[in-house]
Design a protein around this nucleic acid. Structure first.
Lengths: 206, 206
DNA sequence: TTTAATAGTGAACATTTGTTTACTTATTAT
DNA sequence: ATAATAAGTAAACAAATGTTCACTATTAAA
């Protein structure tokens, strides 16, 4: 018996975790078998035994529903973050102007990223070719460093826009992804220009 | 039946809470009876029934150890839900087949909706005109009732697809939002056809 | 007093759940 | 090829657990 988990064992362990998180009590052998579409309980039973031997689960004798999960440090708090939803980006960034806050929303940390982030509701159709629509919510990671092709939130003369970023020899090109709109050019040392952050995600509600 | 709890009921409820906190899973009727030094389970059973009627506990049918504690609205738990991400929809729904699970993700309850939901990774470009791209993740609310124009997950002969739903006189039209693709027509009483759910949201990671 | 609500006992009975045995199938390493 | 491991099926059995019935005791309210 290796000390590693096979893919299947991993899935079963995860299923136990999920069930516990979802229901507040652990699953039975049969429930697990059903989740995996298996008609017999013996297979799952064997896998649970292995998971116990490997120390990932504990169990209280023959009692039903007494599977305990061993490791798993709290998880919840660390996997979720609350971000503000802004109706528009304002001058005065990067300190967020909470004036325009529409509300808050919980996001999986996987999506919020390590640095400061916020959510921004899109106005207008300038990014229609990038499949970003009016009303969509963007996940914006606040940063000054961006690479060619990134979709950025830029602040130009206190006007905020969503554009694709391209650095050219002596200027920056802000490219809308809409055939009907023209790119904006910003000279190298134009004073009133800032990159607020880059778009790392998109949320849309139907 | 008053809405208040008697001292005894209070004690039993507290015992359930303690047991859950201590063991990670809920107590059985007999265990509770033992805790209170009672030789019969019927008394505790009756009290548990009352606690359920008064809304302090919930329980899943006849299942053992399925007592859930209601109040204690930690806020966090209520505003966030964990949904599985599926790589594809399989035959055998609506019981989700865990085989195809890619992982989990926390979603704001605002987006997950009240009924059963899951996340589905999009394969292919059939909905490109609806600005849904290959690789996007859809929030799917499991339901059989959908209206014309809804974007649905449909299961046709064990093949799952994302299409726009239109009910016509004697058939259903599943319309891809891609000019290069043809609609699919399903006759009224075609046997191997199911609506899995409707798409209520979209998540995209850049 | 009578009645209703609460709490309890003992003894069944019904279901759920855990466990085991025997056999099959794939895959992988020797 | 052979053996070992992981995973699965089907069927049975044992134990744990939930539920119900009939009856008793206490207390508070009508």
């Amino acid at each position: 018996m290796s000390t590693q988990l096979t893919p299947k064992q991993e899935k079963v362990l995860q299923a136990v975790r999920d069930f516990q998180a979802q229901n507040g009590f652990p699953p039975t052998v049969r429930e697990l078998a059903e989740m995996f579409g298996q008609s017999s309980t013996a297979g799952i039973h064997k896998i649970l035994q292995i998971l116990r031997e490997k120390g990932h689960l504990v169990k209280d004798g023959r009692k039903s529903r007494s599977l305990g999960i061993v490791d798993q440090g709290d998880l919840h708090e660390d996997r979720v973050r609350s971000l503000p939803i802004l109706g528009q980006v304002q001058a005065g960034m990067p300190q967020l102007a909470y004036e325009e806050k529409e509300g808050d929303m919980f996001i999986d940390s996987e999506w919020a990223g390590p640095s400061e982030s916020f959510l921004l509701r899109v106005r207008g159709h300038s990014m229609i070719d990038a499949d970003i629509r009016d009303g969509d919510i963007l996940v914006v990671r606040q940063t000054q460093t961006c690479r060619n092709g990134d979709i950025v939130i830029a602040l130009l003369d206190d006007e905020a826009t969503v554009k694709r970023f391209y650095k050219e020899h002596d200027r920056i090109r802000l490219q809308p992804e809409n055939p009907n709109m023209q790119p904006i050019y910003v000279e190298r040392d134009y004073p009133n220009f800032h990159i607020i952050g880059i778009v790392s995600g998109l949320l849309r509600k139907f």
